[in-house]
Amino acid sequence: MTTISSMFIPIIVLVVISYGVFRKINVYDSFINGAKEGLPMTISMFFSLLAMIFGVNIFLNSGIIDYFFDFLKPILVLLHIPVEVLPIAIMRPFSGSFGLALLNDLYKVYGPDSLISVLASVIQGSSDTTIYIITLYFGTIGIKKIKYALWVGLLTDLFMVIVALVIVPLFF
């Protein structure tokens, strides 16, 4: 699987360039013109990312999430849901690297093939950093009013966690 994945990028590059040559366009100039758009795009994404990283970092390091976990723990134990996956489920919309660090810890303690680790991996792998995608995409093109986007995004993430809790045990 990973070999297919590592072949994929070189194949795309090769196909795109060969097709460009085949259609007789100046691929070099075309590349330069496209790449030039990278700078204005990077600049316009910087400020919205800065704002969001600033806010998210203060929130994540404030310790408030620990109180929240303590509050939710009894409920989860009652529902027979492994408490260990809770941090990853809550943090997923905010941070990708945080989830990966947590996965690393879980693999170390429970092994990569345990139910807890697989559940956490599936939660990490079946969604994306909703908050950042919204900030990045809307911030870069200058959208101020995002309407119901955040609600739909977060509700879908919550739904994904519930589906994972139901489906993953079926694989064991």
Partner: peptide, 23 residues
Amino acid sequence: VMQIFPLMSLWLGIMNIARESGL
């Protein structure tokens, strides 16, 4: 942003070839 910038420019370049060639 510094990590994203060079990769993004690279892909925007490749994609521009794909766009101009009709691929």
